[in-house]
């Protein structure tokens, strides 16, 4: 459980985080989405007890980060963006160190479980120095989870690793949902869309929008979008024909065709096929265009 109320963090006169409030419940994966420098890392650092807030109250599992810092830190697993590691320790030694430092008396079973889960078992006695970036990322995740914390905070966990590993990391994060509250930051929109139950878009230290990816899609880019590519007449004639359709509100050129938008949820496909039949056009391609968080994000960020 994470509760953030009116959080402000100032560095001198600059506000990195400017009055944001949100909550995350157990069993929920919340994505913090924003461009670099939006205040994601600062928010996370405050939640982990690394730095104190300038204003506002931040509670993790009911404990205030200022008043009960140690209780908060015991309950949080954190993977910083840089994935720091001790290069001169063995993989097993590294996990054991963090497990013990976070209060586990006999961490051996847990550590072995983690090594198993992140497929690091065959490297348990290797030095961390010898691990590739992707493996270090897995070790970083194992480090954040080894003490089985109720709250897991991951700062851009998929940066700088190859696509296969990105998929693995996403799957791992999704699997955490059952027993943990997960706060996950990224500036990759499709990722947040895939992984998170709820998205909080922040920009310049402020929350711009929040909700499920579907809710955001509905709110910030409502309606139906259809991509069609036709031939048989000149592009401008085709455009005019498409614009003449009553349900179509907007026609935009894209690649070799057009994107038709309708503010209502009307099905445009029937209308398009009637034009095709009437004017003897050839249909090259027709598909529904999914609204991506990218569109929403640009939409929101541009507006302000």
């Amino acid at each position: 459980m994470i509760e953030v109320k009116n959080l402000v963090k100032r560095y001198g006169t600059f506000s990195a985080v400017n009055n944001i409030s949100f909550e995350a419940a157990p069993g929920e994966i919340v994505g913090l989405l924003g461009p670099n420098g939006a205040g994601k890392t600062t928010t996370m650092r405050i939640l982990t007890g690394f730095m104190p807030p300038s204003e506002g109250s931040v509670k993790v599992e009911g404990f205030d980060v200022l008043e009960n810092s140690m209780e908060v830190r015991r309950r949080v697993g954190y993977m910083p963006e840089r994935v720091p590691v001790y290069l001169d320790m063995t993989v097993h030694g590294y996990l054991t160190f963090w497990a013990k430092l976070r209060g586990m008396k006999q961490p051996n079973t847990q550590v072995n479980q983690m090594l198993e889960r992140f497929s690091l078992g065959d490297r348990r006695n290797k030095l961390v120095r010898s691990l590739s970036k992707g493996l270090r990322q897995r070790l970083g995740l194992a480090q954040a989870l080894v003490h089985n914390p109720p709250v897991v905070i991951l700062d851009e966990p998929t940066i700088g690793i190859d696509p296969q590993q990105v998929i693995e990391v996403r799957e791992t994060v999704r699997a955490l949902r059952e027993n943990h509250t997960v706060l996950f930051s990224s500036h990759i929109l499709s990722e947040v869309e895939q992984v998170c139950d709820r998205v909080i878009i922040i920009h310049k230290g402020k929350i711009m929008a929040s909700g499920t990816p579907q809710q955001l899609a509905k709110k910030y880019k409502p309606g139906v979008h259809l991509y069609v590519s036709l031939s048989g007449r000149s592009q401008s004639e085709i455009r005019a024909l498409l614009e003449s359709l009553p349900k179509v509100d907007n026609v935009r050129e894209q690649a070799a065709g057009f994107v038709l938008s309708s503010r209502t949820d009307a099905d445009l496909r029937a209308d398009v096929s009637s034009i095709i039949a009437k004017h003897q056009l050839t249909l090259l391609e027709m598909r529904l265009v999914e609204v991506t968080l990218e569109d929403i994000f640009l939409n929101i960020v541009d507006k302000r």
Binding site: F50, P80, P84, V85, R102
Partner: peptide, 14 residues
């Protein structure tokens, strides 16, 4: 330099 200080400072250790 390595950033591990961030982990130490977020561990339940004074």
């Amino acid at each position: 330099r390595e950033g591990t200080m961030e982990l130490l400072l977020t561990a339940p250790v004074s």
